[in-house]
């Protein structure tokens, strides 16, 4: 990603999704074939309460343009 060739910025996004709600909703989006841009990579957690702020900092340090927390 980050295809800069056509001068279009494609952000690289890391998502932390709660197993019980947002991760389930992301599956649901698939079931109804809802189409969205392919820029997100997902880490499943059992609750967004699990997310240590350090995870988010680490994601940015390693090149994430955005972090999505869904819960």
């Amino acid at each position: 990603m980050n295809k800069m060739t056509d001068n279009k910025f494609e952000p690289k996004i890391l998502g932390f999704l709660c197993n019980w709600c947002c991760y389930a909703a992301a599956d649901g989006a698939g079931v109804v074939r809802f189409q969205y841009p392919p820029n997100i990579r997902v880490i499943r957690v059992m609750c967004t309460g699990r997310i240590d702020p350090l995870f988010i900092i680490e994601a940015f340090r390693l090149g994430a343009d955005g972090v999505f927390v869904g819960g």
């Binding site: 698939g30 079931v31 392919p38 997902v42």
Partner: peptide, 16 residues
């Protein structure tokens, strides 16, 4: 999860 959160939601952009 390469179906529900990948192939099903990015059907128009197979490369990505």
């Amino acid at each position: 999860n390469i179906r529900d959160q990948c192939s099903w939601v990015h059907a128009d952009t197979p490369e990505e």
